[in-house]
């Protein structure tokens, strides 16, 4: 149980009224929302999420990871997929619209050591926190590779990246050797999809990640850590990869939430006990959403 009174979370979550700067519609019922949030943008780190009020008539707020934060402009970006009532309302927002948010929430990714090679694995809208982390890693000059499983026909990533002024696919100080090995077997893309698409790896994104790891040198593999966000089935596959290659890593989890700040106990995940025996439910919103891969009791709950 987190004792907020004595920890860094005290007073962290700010209830704010923020303004929509723009809301771009992207292929596959996706959207990119930029919000003017002010000073709080400085505190936002990769892995943090926000609770958005899509409509005051909806009883619950909707949780979204932050996809990017610009401390100078005082803005944050949300990348969303329209899946239901709340996100449909989001898609209708125009620049200038005001809405209520609670942010930042959760505990961010723990920074990897500088000498590590980071394999970032994203599934669908799980790209949001992974993209944010990728950006910060690149800024630091860290070795990192991103693979993304996305079913949308149009090259979503390029669109999102261009909007951002951030050429996601080339900005990495890449672990060139493993990527070259992938190229050699005909996998030149960092995108994967289950439906065959030109220029993309055909299969699960975790299969693409596996190819990468298999083709990495022993030395590179030993330096590699996995950071992932996506559907639970994908994260389970990431956990299996980590086990197979003896790698550690972190995952950002999702579960249905009510409050997002720890009062309702809706958002739980089974986490292994420190003793090593058994598991207990932990709140994703305050103890996560980022957890160490090894801590999740994937087989339980």
């Amino acid at each position: 149980m987190v004792t907020v009174d004595r920890c860094e979370l005290r007073g962290m979550a700010q209830p704010l009224v923020v303004t929509v700067l723009f809301n771009r519609h992207l292929p596959g019922e996706h959207g990119l929302l930029r919000l003017r949030v002010g000073k709080v943008a400085r505190q936002v780190q990769p892995g943090h999420f926000v609770q958005l009020i899509c409509d005051p008539r909806l009883t619950l707020p909707r949780p979204f990871s932050v996809m990017d934060a610009d401390p100078e402009q005082g803005s944050v970006d949300i990348f969303y997929r329209v899946v239901g009532e709340g996100t449909r309302i989001m898609a209708s927002w125009k620049g200038g619209e005001e809405l209520r948010v609670l942010m930042p929430l959760g505990r961010p990714f723990v920074w990897p050591e500088e000498k590590k090679n980071i394999l970032l694995i994203a599934g669908g809208a799980g790209i949001a926190p992974v993209h944010f982390l990728a950006r910060r890693l690149v800024e630091r000059g860290q070795s990192a590779v991103l693979v993304w499983g996305i079913e949308t026909e149009a090259p979503l990533m390029t669109i999102a990246a261009r909007l951002d002024g951030f050429p996601l696919d080339v900005a990495f100080v890449e672990s060139a050797e493993a990527l070259a090995a992938l190229d050699a077997v005909g996998v030149s893309s960092r995108l994967a999809s289950m439906t065959p698409m030109a220029g993309r790896f055909h299969g699960y994104v975790t299969d693409l990640a596996e190819h990468y790891l298999e083709r990495s040198s022993e030395a590179l593999r030993r330096r590699t850590e996995l950071y992932a966000c996506g559907p639970t089935v994908m994260l389970r596959a990431v956990a299996r990869l980590a086990e197979r290659f003896g790698l550690s890593g972190q995952v950002s989890l999702e579960e249905r939430m009510a409050c997002g700040f720890g009062v309702c106990a809706a958002c739980v995940v089974p986490v292994r006990q420190e003793s090593g025996v058994g598991w207990s439910y932990r709140k994703i919103c305050t103890e996560g959403p980022v957890f160490s891969l090894a801590d999740i009791a994937w087989e339980s709950g």
């Binding site: 149980m1 987190v2 004792t3 907020v4 009174d5 979370l9 005290r10 007073g11 962290m12 979550a13 700010q14 209830p15 609670l102 409050c259 700040f261 720890g262 009062v263 309702c264 106990a265 305050t286």
Partner: peptide, 15 residues
């Protein structure tokens, strides 16, 4: 009850 945790979580909300 059930909507305010064990009290301490509310301290996380600024204001």
């Amino acid at each position: 009850s059930g909507c305010a945790g064990f009290g301490e979580e509310l301290a996380m909300v600024e204001g």
